[in-house]
Lab assay of single mutants.
Amino acid sequence: DEETLERIAKELKEKGWTLIVNGKLITDAREALKWLLEEEERR
């Protein structure tokens, strides 16, 4: 759910983690959240 996604995005940002999505590096939590939401919609 959205709360979980926001928590994940926040944790990613705090830890300075990066996500690699389709070979693209995502360092911004907002971008990561946007991607996660798009993935949820596809299901």
Rank of each mutant, 00 (worst) to 15 (best):
G16F: 15
L25Y: 06
E39Y: 14
I8Q: 01
W17G: 11
E2I: 10
E38R: 05
E6L: 09
I8R: 13
L25H: 04
I26F: 12
E11V: 12
E11G: 05
E41T: 09
D1H: 13
V21W: 12
R30F: 14
E39G: 03
W35T: 02
R7L: 10
I26W: 10
G16Q: 08
R30D: 04
R7H: 06
L33V: 03
E38N: 04
E31F: 02
A32F: 15
L37G: 03
K15Y: 14
W35K: 06
D28C: 15
W17E: 02
V21E: 01
E14K: 05
E3A: 14
I20Y: 04
D28K: 12
T18Q: 11
R30E: 09
R42P: 03
L25C: 12
E3N: 11
E41N: 10
G23D: 05
E39N: 08
W35N: 02
V21L: 11
G23K: 01
W17V: 07
R42M: 06
I26R: 00
V21C: 14
L37A: 06
G16I: 14
D1Q: 06
T4D: 09
L12F: 08
R43V: 07
L36C: 15
L19H: 02
W35V: 08
D28P: 01
I26K: 00
K13M: 14
R7I: 05
E14C: 14
A29Q: 02
A29T: 05
L36P: 00
L36V: 03
T18R: 06
R30H: 07
R42L: 08
E6F: 05
E41R: 11
A32L: 15
A29G: 03
G23P: 04
L36I: 05
E40N: 10
E11D: 08
N22H: 02
E40P: 02
K13W: 12
A9L: 14
T27I: 13
D1Y: 15
R43G: 04
K13D: 05
L5C: 13
K24M: 09
E14W: 05
K15P: 11
E6C: 15
D28E: 06
D28Y: 02
T27E: 09
L37D: 02
L37M: 07
E40A: 12
W17A: 02
E39T: 06
E14G: 03
I20W: 05
T27K: 09
E2S: 11
A32W: 13
A29P: 12
T27A: 08
R7W: 11
E38Q: 07
R42Y: 03
W17R: 01
K13L: 15
A9Q: 08
E38P: 00
I20G: 00
T27R: 12
R43P: 06
E40Q: 09
K10Y: 01
L37S: 04
L19F: 08
R7A: 08
E2P: 10
K10D: 02
I8W: 10
I26P: 01
K13R: 10
I8P: 00
E3H: 09
E40M: 12
I8D: 01
